[in-house]
């Protein structure tokens, strides 16, 4: 059995860090978008729906390329926002976070929406007449009642984030210790003549992490069932 060396530990650590950061970063935005799509009627709802869901149907490589075009030195956001602030994203772990967040975003929005659709509008109205502001109502009524969807969405996005490959390799590259996550490392080992063993170990690690996430999700869901 091949043992893990520091480079592999770094890849595993980086994968967890990228997936967790992307999930946490997306959460408030996904919640807001899910709220808009569930409770509000407005112009451009359809357009928003298409934009949010686009990453689900686009090849991740295309998303990576679009992000590169947008965030790179010559890109619109890169040149006008990031450069004046002295921020450089491309080929850093932060780029991997953004790629992962964009790719997983529609999954999270969908899950939260399913949770929110089960929230009775009358409860929201009751909270408002009891003196709770819109934001207060979101935090104390809508969020706890759609918690199941939030948890499912987070688990789904985290798991999807661990496997992100296509978009990440384009915007963040494949730099060992910096942006090389588990899938990128597996890709490297699978392509080199004597990396077979390492590739298998990393696959096993992926399976273990995924099972842990699923079990955790299951545990949280059951706990919620019991408390109801």
């Amino acid at each position: 059995m091949t043992t893990l060396d520091p480079a592999e530990y770094a890849a595993i650590g980086l994968s967890l860090k990228v997936a967790a950061t992307a999930t946490l970063l997306s959460l408030p935005f996904a919640f807001a978008v899910a709220y808009l799509m569930t409770f509000r009627q407005f112009r451009g709802r359809f357009v928003l729906d298409v934009i949010v869901n686009l990453p689900l149907t686009l090849p991740p490589v295309v998303i990576g390329y679009l992000l590169l075009v947008l965030l790179g030195r010559q890109g619109f956001i890169g040149r006008h926002i990031l450069q004046p602030l002295g921020i450089s994203l491309i080929f850093t772990w932060k780029a991997a976070v953004i790629a992962t967040a964009v790719v997983g975003f529609p999954l999270m929005v969908r899950s939260i929406r399913i949770g929110m659709e089960s929230v009775d509008q009358r409860l929201v109205q009751a909270a408002r007449t009891l003196g709770a502001s819109w934001f207060d109502t979101m935090l104390t009524v809508v969020a706890p009642l759609s918690l199941r969807g939030v948890i499912a969405g987070s688990a789904l996005m985290f798991a999807r984030g661990l496997g992100e490959f296509g978009a990440t390799i384009i915007v963040a590259g494949n730099i060992p210790g910096v942006t090389r996550t588990i899938p990128l490392a597996i890709y490297d080992y699978a392509a080199s003549p004597d990396g077979d063993g390492m590739a298998r170990v990393l696959c096993l690690v992926s399976v273990i992490i995924s099972v842990v996430i699923l079990l955790l999700h299951e545990y949280l869901s059951r706990r919620m069932d019991r408390s109801e």
Binding site: D120, R122, L123, R128, T129, L130, G131, D136, L145
Partner: peptide, 20 residues
Amino acid sequence: MPPEQRRIGIIFQQSHLFPH
């Protein structure tokens, strides 16, 4: 004026208690 500032309470046909 937003509903939370009106200080007008409502009792609906169904109780609509917060289930959580």
